[in-house]
C-alpha cells in the first residue's frame, strides 16, 4: 500500500516534470519579416506575436502524452496517421528505454502525432512563418540572418552525420527569445509543412521550379529545411524529425 502511494507520488512528480512547466511557452514578438518563401506580391510577410515552446518536445514529455492517449501509443496509432517506424526506437509502447533518454527530443513521430500532442496541450504546431521568424534569431539579434559566422555555425550542424541519436535539449545557448535548439538537434514539423512551395512546383525538382522563387537564397540552412519538409508525407516518421508546439499570444494558459 505504502509502496503504491510512493509509486503514485513518483509518477505525479515525474508527470509534473514532463508537463508544460518543464517546457514553457515563451513569447516571440510579431514582426514584418522577409521570409525565404515567396509570398505573392509583397516582399515581406506579417507574423503576429505568438508563443513557442522553449525546447523540442522530449521523450519524457511525449511519454506522458501517450500514457493518457492510448490511440497514439505505438501499435495503436493507425498506419495512415503514423507509419511503421512510429516511435520505433522506443523499447516498448510505454517505455522509451535506454535508446531514448528522457530529455532527448522525441523523434520518429508523424505530423499527425505531433499535431495531436500539441492539441492535448491546448496548443498547435507553429506555422512555417512563425518557425522561420524564431529561427532567424541568434543569442543577440532578432534577425541574425545576415551574420555570416552565425550562418556558418548552423551549416556546421547540418554537415554532421545524422546517424547518432540527438543530444539532450538545452545544452547550447538560448536565442534572444530564450528558445533552445531551434537549430542543431532535430528538424521540426510545422503546421503547413507540405504547402511551402508553390503548388505547381515539383518537389523532386527542387532546383528547378521550386527554388527559383525563393528569397534569401544565401540562407542555405533554411532552404534545406524547406526541401526536407516538402519531401515528407504527414504520416512519415524519421529519426531526425521532432517538433515543438506554439500558441497564439492571447492564449492565457
Amino acid at each position: 500500500m505504502l509502496a503504491g502511494c510512493a509509486a503514485t507520488g513518483a509518477l505525479l512528480l515525474w508527470a509534473w516534470a514532463a508537463s508544460a512547466a518543464g517546457n514553457p511557452f515563451l513569447p516571440v514578438a510579431g514582426a514584418e519579416f522577409r521570409s525565404t518563401l515567396p509570398s505573392g506580391r509583397q516582399d515581406k510577410v506579417v507574423v503576429r506575436g505568438f508563443l513557442l515552446q522553449r525546447h523540442p518536445v522530449t521523450n519524457a514529455e511525449f511519454l506522458a502524452f501517450v500514457s493518457t492517449h492510448r490511440e497514439w501509443q505505438r501499435g495503436s496509432a493507425p498506419v495512415i496517421l503514423a507509419d511503421a517506424g512510429y516511435l520505433g526506437h522506443w523499447a516498448a509502447p510505454l517505455d522509451p528505454g535506454p535508446g531514448a533518454a528522457a530529455s532527448q527530443p522525441v523523434t520518429r513521430v508523424s505530423w499527425f502525432a505531433a499535431q495531436a500532442y500539441c492539441e492535448a496541450q491546448q496548443a498547435r504546431l507553429p506555422s512555417w512563418y512563425e518557425w522561420e521568424l524564431a529561427a532567424a534569431a541568434s543569442a543577440t539579434q532578432r534577425d541574425a540572418r545576415a551574420d555570416a559566422s552565425w550562418r556558418q555555425q548552423i551549416l556546421d550542424w547540418y554537415a554532421h552525420p545524422a546517424g547518432d541519436a540527438p543530444a539532450v535539449v538545452e545544452q547550447g545557448a538560448a536565442n534572444v527569445y530564450g528558445l533552445y535548439d531551434i537549430h542543431g538537434l532535430v528538424w521540426e514539423w510545422v503546421h503547413d509543412f507540405d504547402s511551402l512551395l508553390p503548388a505547381d512546383a515539383d518537389p523532386e525538382r527542387f532546383c528547378g521550379s521550386g527554388a527559383q522563387n525563393l528569397q534569401e537564397k544565401e540562407n542555405y540552412a533554411v532552404l534545406m529545411r524547406i526541401a526536407l519538409l516538402g519531401s515528407l508525407r504527414a504520416a512519415d516518421t524519421g529519426h531526425t524529425i521532432g517538433f515543438r508546439c506554439a500558441r497564439d499570444a492571447g492564449a492565457t494558459r
Binding site: S39, G40, R41
Partner: peptide
Amino acid sequence: LGFHYRRLED
C-alpha cells in the same frame, strides 16, 4: 489526400 494549399498575403 495529398492536397496542398497556402494562403497568400492578398
